[in-house]
Amino acid sequence: MVVDDKTANAAHLDDITVKPAHAFDDMATMLGPKNPSSSVCWCLSWRLPSTENRTLLGADRADKVRELCARDHAPGVLAYLGDDVVGWAGIAPRTELHPIEHSRRIPHVDGLPVWSLWCMRVRPGYRKRGITAALIEGAVDYARDQGAPAVEGYPVDNRGERVDQTMAFVGTRAMFERAGFSWVADTRSVSGGIPRIVMRRMLR
């Protein structure tokens, strides 16, 4: 789950490395179920059309992620402390994320071909150690390397209100502001009952 990394015991960012998510086994550590036949999100729910997402079950969902990891264009980034994978962030062109690209609740601000940072997860036992900040920066760096003109996030504007950890994967406004993002639009989307906003960081 996402954490708001403002604690004094955060790891030094130089100790955290962020890499394109091509290692399927590490993706499975971050996103997969203990039972391989179980149907879990695998961070596909915000990527696939709803019909495909509903019909893709069990191990087929893992196979879809394996396919995404094998592409030249990674499905996101993974954070590591030493050899241990400790975090995941989904970053991709918005046009690849069917539910966001076609959302009636999250607006297109303009015609810029933005990339979307839509999901972040930190492993239990590694939270409040600066992982989320490193994930955001690593995701932005990856998007820049791939030619993205800007990165958007869709965090909750919680104004200090507690965010339910089960819905915290979208991040918070303060978290994105610390990473150099600015508000660009409101949305009609909510997460855990809290309004979400569009935040953007220009890369060119």
Rank of each mutant, 00 (worst) to 15 (best):
A133K: 10
V198H: 05
R47H: 13
A28I: 13
P33D: 10
E52V: 12
R178M: 02
P49T: 06
S38V: 00
A89Y: 03
S182G: 12
A92K: 11
M120Q: 01
A21G: 12
I194W: 04
P33C: 04
F24S: 12
V86R: 01
D186G: 13
A179T: 02
A10E: 11
L135Q: 09
A10Y: 04
E67F: 14
A143C: 06
G87V: 01
T172K: 08
A74V: 07
E152R: 00
S103T: 09
S45I: 02
M202Y: 11
A150K: 02
R173H: 10
A28C: 13
Y142C: 08
D164S: 10
T29Q: 11
R159V: 10
M27D: 08
T187C: 09
C43D: 03
Y154Q: 07
C69I: 01
D186S: 14
I91A: 09
G147A: 01
V18F: 03
V40Y: 06
R104F: 13
S103D: 09
T29A: 15
G32Y: 02
G87F: 10
E96Y: 10
G58A: 04
S37T: 10
A8F: 12
T17M: 07
L56M: 13
P155T: 07
A59T: 13
D84Q: 15
D14K: 13
L68Q: 11
A133H: 08
L57K: 15
P99N: 02
G90E: 05
D15R: 15
G160R: 07
V2A: 08
E101Q: 15
S103H: 09
D72R: 07
V85I: 06
M120C: 02
V109L: 03
S37N: 07
R104T: 12
T187V: 09
G138I: 04
V140C: 07
T166D: 15
A10I: 11
D4K: 12
P99L: 02
N158L: 05
D60C: 06
P124I: 13
P99S: 05
N35S: 09
C69Q: 05
R54N: 14
F176H: 01
R105D: 14
R178Q: 14
W42R: 01
S45G: 13
N158K: 03
D164P: 04
G125T: 04
V163L: 12
Y126D: 03
G160C: 11
L13N: 12
A74W: 05
H102A: 08
T187K: 00
I100H: 13
L112Y: 04
V170M: 04
R204C: 07
